[in-house]
Write a protein that binds this DNA or RNA. Structure first.
Lengths: 270, 270
DNA sequence: TTGCTCCTCACGTCACGTGAGGTGGC
DNA sequence: TTGCTCCTCACGTCACGTGAGGTGGC
């Protein structure tokens, strides 16, 4: 025997509000067992309680409704587990980001004058390089960067070429102004004396152009990289220089501990 | 000399997207230093860069725009610090909730059959009690509960009355169905032989009515309290009982470690 | 019969993002 | 002059919440 529960009963049992239950009906996430065609009254059964609980748990973790639906409809356990694992991963990332945002805020508040960023001018020579390029959303940038940076040394070994300097990245302005654009990471190499074959996957041999830049070094993690960008951008603007080219970064040291990273941030000048 | 920056320049320097900058202008969070009245072009100055950075930091922490505005306009450092501290507190709470939601999900997934909840029937006798009652939003409930529970013993000492049983709480259905309603916490006392004076603040002497209930014990934190509610509600519904009264809880033990709490959850029956 | 529960529908919220259609500045 | 940057305006997104106005069921 299926006990018929009104929406109010079901709400009390599941701790999902009535408004929320109606919403979940509208979007097809949790359909009442029965709807009276005359009155429109929704009726649920006790068998639906565990489903509602599962939904609540996932929504508490901010899993999007569409994804919760996918989890509930997943054909088998492994598909389900994969979706859940993916979401827990995202949660993990988000927790780390929040943690880092808190630290960043603390730094901003405790800092008395704003540690001066030392800016120098430098002329970067053009070079050949092993490159990976993609057009992507700003939000994908960090993950993409890590993957591409990890791939480059393996590809380099395939080419048999000599490495010729610190790895770098080039980032289109639109990545910042419009939240999407082209990014490149590269490993400088001595110019190849003969053509390099295929089989390098997404990696390519290309030339990285020379340019004059305003440059500042960032010691530590990229948590506060925006402060360096701000210093450089302000410097270039105050001098009335044309800084319209894409920004470039050189990764002098990237050990496991991000606090020990050393990076050069380069803002191109005219 | 104030360097005039176009919205694109300013976007690159601050890492706020152009759309976001326009939005912040619309809502008055960050106004351009100048707007060309003919073209509508926005112009910013380098002096605005630090302000933009501060905004970005706070928004990264999900501080609502209205609050960021309040922080920026705070007349003095202490008002500002108070707003920031309040927000960091909320962040802390939220991190804890996320943590607990993850654990709760893990529990739901690893649990094989769903630990059976033992349900018994009991008749609760009416009693006099020292009570604190409020109408509140569901989201305020936990904080309010902690404050009121902490206050009750002090108030009891003021009355000179004898405690007569475990503290409890009574929660209106609308708290769950409609996200707001009346909540009461109480400390049972022997019926006072003479009127109790005023000066008890928000606490009152009142009578807690008797009722018959379906009851289950929750050992551990209230993280998974909804599972007990679900078991009781399903039980009552399946037996076709009228369970429309407000839910009641008794706090048998609330030591510092929430995993050692013991609570009786009572679903009233007709 | 009363009043409590339930219903729909249209709109609001929050912090932007999207996209059409158009104009200004070097 | 071209095309790149900038503009407005209306609407969309996400997960509901609000509120008006009305009806069903015990």
């Amino acid at each position: 025997m299926q006990a018929e529960l009104t929406i109010g009963d079901f709400s009390r049992i599941t701790h999902l509000s009535i408004k929320t239950l109606r919403h979940y009906h509208r979007v097809g996430l949790l359909e009442p067992a029965e709807v009276n065609p005359d009155s429109g009254y929704r009726y649920y059964t006790v068998a639906q309680v565990p489903v509602a609980q599962t939904i609540r748990r996932f929504r508490d973790l901010d899993m999007p409704v569409d994804e919760v639906r996918a989890v509930l409809k997943a054909p088998d356990g492994s598909a389900r587990d994969a979706l859940i694992a993916a979401h827990l991963d995202r949660m993990q990332t988000q927790l780390a980001q929040t943690q880092s945002a808190v630290e960043s805020l603390r730094a901003l508040l405790t800092e008395t004058t704003g540690a001066a960023v030392k800016i120098e001018r430098r002329t970067l020579a053009p070079t050949a390089a092993l490159t990976i390029t993609a057009t992507l959303e700003r939000s994908e940038l960090v993950d993409w960067w890590a993957g591409a940076m990890a791939e480059l040394p393996d590809r380099l070994a395939q080419t048999g070429l000599e490495r010729n300097g610190a790895p770098g990245g080039i980032f289109a302005n639109s990545l910042f102004t419009d939240d999407q654009g082209e990014a490149t990471v590269f490993l400088p190499v001595a110019a190849p004396t003969q053509p390099v074959g295929t089989g390098l996957g997404r990696a390519r041999i290309a030339s990285v152009p020379g340019t004059e830049v305003a440059l500042a070094r960032l010691d530590g993690s990229h948590r506060d990289v925006d402060r360096v960008y701000a210093a450089l951008g302000s410097y270039v603007a105050e001098l009335g220089l044309d800084g319209s080219g894409p920004v470039r970064e050189y990764y002098l040291a990237t050990p496991a501990n991000p606090d020990e990273w050393r990076t050069e941030i380069c803002w191109p000048i005219g």
